[in-house]
Amino acid sequence: MLEMTDVTSYYGSSPVLQNISFSIPDGALLSILGRNGVGKSTLMRTIMGLTDRVTGIIGLGGRDIRPEPTHRRAGLGIAYVPQGRGIIGRFTIRENILMGTFARPDGKRDIPPLVFELFPYLRDNLNRRGGDLSGGQQQQLAIARALAADPKVLLLDEPTEGIQPNIVEQIERVITTLNREHGMTVLLVEQNVRFARRASDGFLMLDKGRVAAHGGINALTDDLVQRHMTV
């Protein structure tokens, strides 16, 4: 169970997120929705400990992880695929994936077979440099790196943004598979409401840094979408 209780998150002295509370049960998929700039990415960065200051409680498995530094949160089983993917350009595909294993608490350095089952392209091009890949390939690599960490919770920040349509479909399938067949808890920032409705168990609608609505995916009415997502 990942949960936030009354979390306020700051960049410098300005609170970007205010009084956020929500929870996501193990094995569920929660979509975070809202317009650009309402704090969706900041929410993910807050979970990873990448904002300047946070108040409130960030609970993971019943324990407050707020005092933990970023690298220790990774070790607790949270893997983060940021917007822009955060691929290490000079690393090969192999090195990028291997980097994911540094977060494993068991200290193992082998790449889980699942990674290559999901992304055969990566298996066949292990020595290509991350910086030379297309956006879609980089997104696959970023997810592969996250999986190499053997995480319990996966944070995906707009995984299909700016990616060629054939790969979008593949990535959506991968997300659903990971969640439904491998029981991974997924927190997904998504602009595509259709996919969110299809894949999620619940949603969290943000507006101006606050929770506008939160609930099961069936409660995501067209009216809510109209009010908080259309520009």
Binding site: P69, H71, Y80, M99, F102, A103
Partner: peptide, 21 residues
């Protein structure tokens, strides 16, 4: 060395993957 190269190129992502930068 690999951790160092990761931190050099992207400190934030390095710490997101367990590297104590």
């Amino acid at each position: 060395g690999m951790k160092l190269r990761a931190v050099t190129q992207n400190r934030e992502m390095a710490s997101c993957y367990g590297i104590n930068s």
